[in-house]
Computed example of a mutant assay.
Amino acid sequence: MKLYKKGDETSYTLGVFPTIELLIQKPEMVKRVVVHSSIEQNKGYPVIQDLCEKYHIQIDVHDRTIEKLSPKNNCYAIGVFQTYTSLLHNGNHVVLEHPMDMGNMGTIMRTMLGFGYKDLVIIKPAVDIFDPKVIRASMGAIFHLNIAFYDTFEDYHTQFSKREFYPFMLKGAQNIHQVKAVKPYSLIFGNESHGLDDRYLNYGQSVFIPHSEDIDSLNLSMALTIALFHFSKEQWEGKEVLKENV
C-alpha cells in the first residue's frame, strides 16, 4: 500500500478513533482495515472487530503497512476507503474560500460538528480534504459532514441564492453581537492569509468580530469558532449538553 497523494481514489485514516468513525459513518466506502499486531491492547479494537463483522469488511494484521503510512508510533489502525462526493442539505452552511492549511481544516471540521453544522462548502483551489493529515486532525469529524466544492463563490451563490449570507470581514458592516441570524444562512470565511476581498460586501450582511487593538486580526479557526458559537446559541438554550470533567 502506498502513501496518499493528492487526488488518489483511495485514502486512509490514521488511528483507532478516526477508523471507528469511518466504519460507523461511511461503511459502504471502506475497502479494508489494517491493524498493528499490538492493537489488542487498545479498548477500541473490539468495536472495530464488531463493525467489520457487521459490514463484512476485511481486517489485515500488517505492522509494516502501519509503520510505513503513519508518522507516529501510536497508530494501531488504518481504515482504507474510497474517496467520495456528497450533496449539501438546504440548511445552514459554512463556506470557506481557498482554505489551504491541513491542520486548520481538520480543526474546522471538528468545530463544525461540535456546534451542529454538517454542510461545508469549499471554494477552490483548496487543501485536499482526504489527505490523511486532515482526516486525523478532524478526529473523524469529516465522515459526518456533507462537503461540496465549487470553482467560484458565484457558482455556489447561484445554486443557493434563496438564503441569507454572512461574510466575515475586517470591513464588516455589523458587529457580530448585533446580528440576529435569519435561517437558512451561509457563514462565509476567507483564506487563512488574505481573508475575504471587498466584493463580498455585496453579498448579504457583512459581519465583523470586535477585538482589542493589541492584535490585527483573529486567525481563521478562532474566528470560525466564535461565529459558530454565536450563530448556534439558540439551539442550545435550555438543552442538556454533554459535559466533560476536566
Rank of each mutant, 00 (worst) to 15 (best):
M1Q: 09
Y4F: 13
K6T: 15
K6M: 12
G7L: 12
E9Y: 10
E9V: 12
E9G: 08
T13Y: 07
F17M: 13
F17R: 15
P18Q: 07
T19A: 04
L22K: 08
L22G: 01
Q25H: 13
K26W: 08
K26V: 02
K26H: 05
M29A: 12
V30W: 05
E40H: 14
E40A: 11
Q41M: 14
I48R: 10
Q49P: 07
Q49D: 06
D50K: 15
E53I: 10
E53G: 02
I57T: 03
V61L: 05
H62K: 15
H62L: 11
D63R: 12
I66F: 05
E67M: 13
N73S: 13
N73W: 09
C75P: 09
C75Y: 09
G79I: 07
F81P: 03
F81K: 07
L87E: 13
L88P: 05
H89C: 07
H93V: 03
V94D: 00
V95C: 03
H98P: 02
P99Y: 00
N104D: 03
M105D: 02
T107R: 11
T111N: 11
M112S: 02
M112C: 04
L113H: 06
L113N: 08
L113P: 00
L113Q: 11
G114T: 09
Y117D: 04
V121Y: 04
I123R: 06
I123C: 01
A126Q: 04
A126N: 06
A126P: 07
V127E: 09
F130Q: 05
K133S: 07
V134P: 05
V134A: 02
I135H: 00
R136Y: 07
A137V: 04
S138N: 04
M139D: 04
A141N: 03
H144R: 11
L145I: 08
N146I: 09
N146Y: 09
F149T: 03
F149L: 10
D151W: 01
D151L: 10
T152S: 13
D155E: 13
Q159P: 02
S161H: 14
K162P: 00
E164S: 10
Y166H: 03
P167E: 01
P167V: 04
F168L: 14
M169G: 01
L170R: 13
G172Y: 05
A173I: 12
I176A: 00
V179R: 08
P184N: 06
P184W: 10
Y185E: 06
L187E: 06
I188Y: 02
F189Y: 04
N191D: 03
S193R: 15
H194G: 02
G195C: 05
L196K: 03
D198H: 09
D198S: 12
L201S: 08
Y203A: 01
S206V: 10
S206R: 08
V207M: 02
V207C: 03
V207W: 03
H211D: 04
I215P: 04
D216G: 02
S217V: 14
N219F: 08
L220F: 05
S221Q: 14
L224C: 03
A227T: 13
F229S: 06
S232E: 03
Q235K: 15
W236I: 12
E237A: 12
E237R: 15
N245F: 15
